[in-house]
Simulated assay, not measured.
Amino acid sequence: MQLGIGTYTFGWAVGTPGNRPDHPLDELGLLNRATALGFSLVQIGDNLPLHTLSTEQLCAFEQQAQQQGIRLEVGARGLTETNLDQYINLAAGLKSRLLRFVIDSSAYEPTLDTVIGILKNAVPSLKKAKITLGLENHDRLLAREFAHIVEQVGSEHLGICLDSVNSMGAGEGLAEVVQTLAPYTVNLHLKDFGIRRLSHLMGFQIDGRPAGQGLLNIPWLVEQVATRSRCQTAILEQWVVPESTLPASIDKEENWVTDSINYLINSNLFTR
Rank of each mutant, 00 (worst) to 15 (best):
M1F: 09
T7S: 03
F10T: 01
G11F: 01
W12C: 03
G15Y: 00
T16S: 07
T16P: 00
G18S: 08
G29S: 02
L31M: 12
A34V: 13
T35F: 05
A36G: 06
A36Q: 12
L37R: 11
F39N: 04
S40E: 15
G45D: 10
D46F: 07
L48M: 14
P49C: 04
C59W: 10
Q64G: 01
A65Y: 09
Q66E: 08
G69N: 12
I70V: 15
E73D: 13
V74W: 09
R77V: 09
E81A: 15
N83D: 15
L84T: 06
Y87H: 12
I88Y: 11
L90K: 11
A91S: 14
A92L: 07
S105P: 04
S105Y: 05
Y108E: 08
Y108K: 09
E109P: 00
P110S: 07
D113C: 00
D113H: 03
I116K: 07
L119R: 08
L119M: 10
N121G: 08
A122M: 07
V123H: 09
P124T: 09
K128W: 00
A129F: 05
G134C: 03
L135I: 08
H138E: 10
H138C: 06
L141N: 09
L141I: 06
L142Q: 11
A143S: 15
A147N: 01
V150H: 10
Q152R: 14
Q152W: 02
Q152V: 08
G154Y: 02
L158A: 00
I160F: 03
I160H: 00
C161N: 05
D163F: 01
S164K: 02
V165S: 02
S167H: 09
M168C: 03
G169C: 04
A170R: 10
G171S: 02
L174D: 01
E176S: 13
V177D: 02
V178H: 06
Q179F: 06
T180S: 11
Y184P: 00
H189F: 07
F193I: 09
G194Y: 13
S199H: 14
S199E: 15
H200R: 12
M202N: 14
G203A: 12
Q205G: 12
Q213G: 05
L215E: 15
P219V: 10
E223P: 03
A226E: 15
S229T: 11
C231E: 11
T233D: 04
I235H: 02
Q238H: 15
P242D: 11
E243G: 06
S244A: 15
T245F: 02
P247V: 03
A248V: 06
A248T: 04
S249Q: 10
V257R: 00
V257Y: 01
T258W: 01
S260F: 08
S260D: 06
N262R: 14
N262W: 04
N266T: 07
S267M: 02
N268Y: 03
N268L: 03
L269T: 04
